[in-house]
Amino acid sequence: MGKPLIPDGPMTEDAARAQTEALLERLLGAYGQFLRGTLRRMMPRQMGISLDDLEQDVRVRLWRALETEREIVSPSSYLYRIAATATLDAVRKARTRRREVPLDDREEGGMWAAESGGVGTSRFVASGDDPATAAARAQMLERIDRARRSLVPPRDEAVGLHLQGFTTREIGGLLGWTEPKARNLVYRGLAELKTAMGNEGVELEADEE
């Protein structure tokens, strides 16, 4: 005779907690060290995010998830989703805080510099713009958006991602294309964009070496 699915008697809170703790230990035993190491290397420190806080947040999220989900089909992927979500939430919160900080007080350099316009020296991208420059930049962005939206799909998306700084390998990976296909679409898309920008009164020229 097999055991019933639910043994007699209600599950106590202590028992439920013990089971969740066991699952948490099991996951963190397998991935805990790796999790901390990866978060340490990957997290955008210059945004003022604390590794300890982030790691604690991941643990709390994991705990909550384990309380409701009793079977984990892909532990690695499962933990990745939780870690990535916690990191991105922390990034968004940090970004909100940064919006309250004057532009000139923001640090420069690194992956996040683009947020403050810190990587460029172009007349359009300098930080601490005066109102006239900011207006010119907004107008230029409108033209770029219009030109990009006029491209033939899927070149518009390929060009959009390229302009956002994604490599052709990354674009291919995201959209399910081979790298040569992504490169080809970006190349053709940029050529098309040049024409479309011309129609907007902007001449696209090659970068100076």
């Binding site: 043994p7 028992a15 439920a16 009793r70 079977e71 984990i72 892909s74 690695s76």
Partner: peptide, 22 residues
């Protein structure tokens, strides 16, 4: 940076939660 799936913790986590009185 994340590893591919490993088998170390790949066994299904038991269901249902053991509703056992202790």
């Amino acid at each position: 940076e994340w590893p591919l799936e490993t088998r170390s913790v790949d066994a299904p986590v038991p269901f249902p939660p053991a509703r056992r009185s202790y």
